[in-house]
Simulated scan of single mutants.
Amino acid sequence: MTLPKFLLADNSKFPEDIFVLHTEFPRFLINLKDDEVEWFEDLTGESEEDIATELADLMDKAGAFYDDEMKEFD
């Protein structure tokens, strides 16, 4: 099965939160409400600078993905 790079996720126990799941390496879940990130990968040994740069880029892409998805509902 081919997975999309990003998936929207929500949970009725967190009605104010908006989650985007990144399915490729490095896999993570971001809460767009507060930009909190939960990593599903062990990034030990990775360059902190590379991680910070990649995270910033992926967070921007996650936000753009969400915006594009919401345009589909309008």
Rank of each mutant, 00 (worst) to 15 (best):
D60T: 02
K33L: 01
L21P: 00
K71E: 13
A56E: 14
V20F: 06
K13D: 08
D34W: 00
D35I: 00
R27L: 06
D34N: 12
E49Q: 10
G63A: 03
E48K: 13
F65G: 10
K5V: 09
E48T: 10
L21Q: 08
F28S: 02
A52W: 03
L43S: 12
E46C: 10
E16V: 06
L8K: 12
E38I: 11
E48N: 11
F73M: 14
D68S: 10
T53I: 10
F25S: 04
P15R: 10
W39V: 02
V20I: 14
L21F: 10
D57K: 09
E36R: 07
E54S: 07
K5N: 08
S12Q: 09
P15D: 15
D68K: 13
A9Q: 14
M59N: 01
L58T: 02
F6G: 01
A52T: 09
D57F: 05
D74T: 12
I51R: 13
K71L: 14
A64R: 14
E69H: 08
F65C: 09
H22R: 13
I18P: 01
E38V: 05
K33I: 01
L55C: 10
D10Q: 14
P4K: 14
K61V: 00
D60K: 07
T2Q: 15
P4Y: 07
E41A: 08
R27H: 10
S47F: 06
D57H: 07
T23M: 07
D34L: 04
D67S: 14
T44F: 03
M1R: 13
E49D: 06
E69P: 01
F28R: 01
L43T: 04
M1F: 05
P4N: 15
K33D: 00
E49V: 04
E69T: 04
R27Q: 13
K71T: 13
P4R: 15
A62M: 04
D74P: 02
D74M: 12
M59G: 01
N31P: 00
D67I: 04
F28W: 02
E49T: 14
V20G: 02
D10S: 15
M1A: 11
E54C: 07
K71F: 07
E72Q: 09
E36D: 08
N11G: 05
E48P: 03
E41G: 05
K71H: 11
P26K: 06
M70F: 12
K71G: 04
F28V: 00
L43A: 06
L32Y: 02
L29P: 02
M59W: 04
